[in-house]
Simulated scan of single mutants.
Amino acid sequence: MSLTATDRPLPPLAPRAWLRYDVVSRIIDRLAPTTALEIGCGQGAFGARLATRADYLGIEPDADSFAVAYERITCMGGKVLNAMSSELEPGATYDLVCAFEVLEHIEDDKGALAEWVTHVRPGGRLVLSVPAFQERFGPMDRHAGHFRRYSPAELTARLEEAGLVDIDITVYGWPLGYALEAVRNRIDARKLEKVGDLTPEELTRATGRTFQPSGRLKGAAIALATSPFMALQRLRPDTGTGLVAVATRRD
């Protein structure tokens, strides 16, 4: 007997991704989109989950990450393209457009948001996540190819400039995110000494493949260890290391 999408095991998530997904999944539950587009789906760990909840399309420009995402998402009923968002069909719109840990990799973030909004149907939503607070910018950000981090006020301003309304921003990651970030900063400081003078674009290509867990048992252990911190962060939705925003395109 063949497995249905709901029977198949979901890809494992890294600890920081679990903290992020705890916020995102509750937003998706509330919005209940029929169609969804994910820009920069990486290796498809979030996309596989979204594909069970909406008619899903993911796009990923990195060929290696796309190959993994394709295997993970298509078996869940979704679609994936090895492409840039600028290559999407003009005029195609979705109930939900999302981009997780993508905007900070783009130098022209205003231009990117303006393009993404064209794919949100009138009255639909844009959901995105970014690292929080520029004063926390460190080796992890430089090694990942980040141009910046955002405060809630700065991200709100960017979304308003893109014509979005009803903006709601959650800060997540307290308290575990601080420890995870400290470890990553130490590791990535050493990596930066080895990679030489690479551009943010060159560093970005590999970021979707970095620190991604593999194997069902390891994934289950990470989920179990992270679950208490997912509950804890809900107590402090204004404190942490990352932001999740949801905003509406004018009807």
Score class of each variant (00 low, 15 high):
Leu3Gln: 05
Asp7Trp: 04
Asp7His: 02
Asp7Met: 10
Pro9Lys: 00
Leu10Met: 09
Ala14Thr: 11
Arg16His: 13
Tyr21Gly: 08
Ser25Tyr: 01
Arg30Ile: 07
Glu38Pro: 12
Phe46Pro: 01
Phe46Lys: 09
Gly47Trp: 04
Arg53Ala: 05
Arg53Thr: 08
Leu57Gln: 06
Ala63His: 15
Ser65Tyr: 07
Phe66His: 15
Ala67Trp: 08
Ala69Pro: 13
Leu81Met: 15
Leu81Phe: 12
Glu87Tyr: 07
Glu87Met: 12
Asp95Ala: 01
Asp95Thr: 12
Asp95Glu: 00
Ala99Asn: 04
Phe100Ile: 05
Phe100Arg: 07
Glu101His: 02
Val102Ser: 04
Leu103Glu: 01
Ile106Lys: 02
Ile106Asn: 06
Glu107Gly: 03
Ala112Leu: 06
Leu113Met: 00
Val120Gln: 08
Arg121Pro: 06
Pro122Asp: 00
Gly123Leu: 12
Gly124Gln: 09
Gly124Asp: 11
Leu126Pro: 03
Val127Ala: 11
Val130Cys: 07
Phe137Cys: 03
His143Leu: 11
His143Gly: 00
Phe147Leu: 02
Arg149Cys: 10
Ala153Glu: 13
Ala153Tyr: 12
Leu155Gln: 03
Leu155Cys: 08
Glu160Gln: 10
Ala162Asp: 08
Asp168Asn: 09
Thr170Met: 11
Val171Asn: 07
Pro175Asn: 10
Asp188Met: 08
Arg190Tyr: 01
Arg190Ala: 14
Val195Trp: 04
Gly196Met: 10
Thr199Ala: 12
Glu201Ser: 09
Leu203Asp: 02
Leu203Thr: 01
Arg205Gly: 00
Ala206Gly: 14
Gly208Arg: 01
Thr210Tyr: 14
Gly215Tyr: 07
Lys218Gly: 15
Gly219Glu: 02
Ala225Val: 05
Thr226Phe: 02
Thr226Asp: 08
Ser227Asn: 07
Ser227Trp: 13
Pro228Ile: 02
Phe229Val: 01
Met230Gln: 15
Ala247Thr: 10
Thr248Met: 09
Arg249Trp: 03
